[in-house]
């Protein structure tokens, strides 16, 4: 389980997250949603141990998160993090040397599924195919936690769909938990078990989606619109 205890993160004078208390259960696909600059990526980086909290603790399976948590956490960065002179296969081989839980067979299946040419140079790939390579090297790991920062952003609908299908096909929710930040709410709506809505560094709400649909009869988009407008009104009154 991932747990945040009163976590605040400041970058110099800017507060990215403030007073976060959060528990993310295992075996789910969890969406972290919010506007640009709301603190979504910082939340993910804190779990991955890539940044440290200014206050409070982030625990992954009761262990404070730090750089070495990478052996339990597979992290897909929003940025492009490959070596451009590698081929797709060399990129996969490189990741295999870095992570003991790397599953070479799954990587091969995923390359097939994504119709990636193992011999193609990464720098010559389309943006969509580079997005697919990132998914391959992330999901090829048998890591208990998979974190994906904006895996769909800037990609065309066909690529977004193939990445979603790839995730559904290759993740094992009996052993893995997925946390994904995204703007593309419509596209991931049917994919998510639970949503953490963030605004201005604070958690607005955490909700289980089928509960939301059952109890309130609204979609995620409708719910987002309503909580964000409530929230805006409250901050005006304050």
């Amino acid at each position: 389980m991932i747990r945040f205890e009163q976590v605040t993160k400041k970058y110099l004078t800017k507060t990215a997250l403030e007073g976060i208390d959060l528990e993310l259960p295992q075996g789910e696909i969890i969406g972290v949603i919010g506007e640009n600059g709301s603190g979504k990526s910082t939340l993910l980086k804190l779990i991955a141990g890539l940044v440290r909290p200014s206050k409070g603790r982030v625990l992954v399976d009761e262990e404070p998160s730090h750089r070495r948590i990478a052996r339990k956490v597979a992290y897909l960065s929003e940025l492009e993090t490959y070596y451009p002179f590698f081929t797709v296969q060399q990129t996969v081989d490189f990741y295999e040397t870095q992570f003991a839980d790397f599953n070479r067979e799954r990587a091969r299946e995923m390359m097939d599924f994504m119709q990636l040419d193992p011999q193609a140079k990464v720098k010559n790939l389309s943006k969509g195919n580079r997005g697919r390579v990132k998914l391959v090297v992330t999901l090829a790991r048998d890591a208990p936690y998979i974190l994906m920062d904006e895996p769909l952003s800037g990609l065309d609908p066909i690529v977004r769909n193939s990445i979603i299908k790839g995730l559904i096909s290759f993740v094992d929710l009996e052993k893995q938990t997925v946390v994904i930040t995204t703007h593309e709410i419509n596209e991931v709506e049917a994919l998510l078990d639970r949503v953490v809505a963030i605004r201005n560094g604070k958690i607005v709400k955490v909700v289980e989606l089928d509960e939301l649909r059952l109890n309130e009869g609204v979609s995620l988009v409708e719910w987002m619109t309503s909580i964000y407008s409530d929230n805006a009104n409250q901050s005006k009154e304050a």
Partner: peptide, 8 residues
């Protein structure tokens, strides 16, 4: 996979 929904 066929219905594009979460396995859960």
């Amino acid at each position: 996979v066929a219905s594009n929904v979460n396995p859960n």
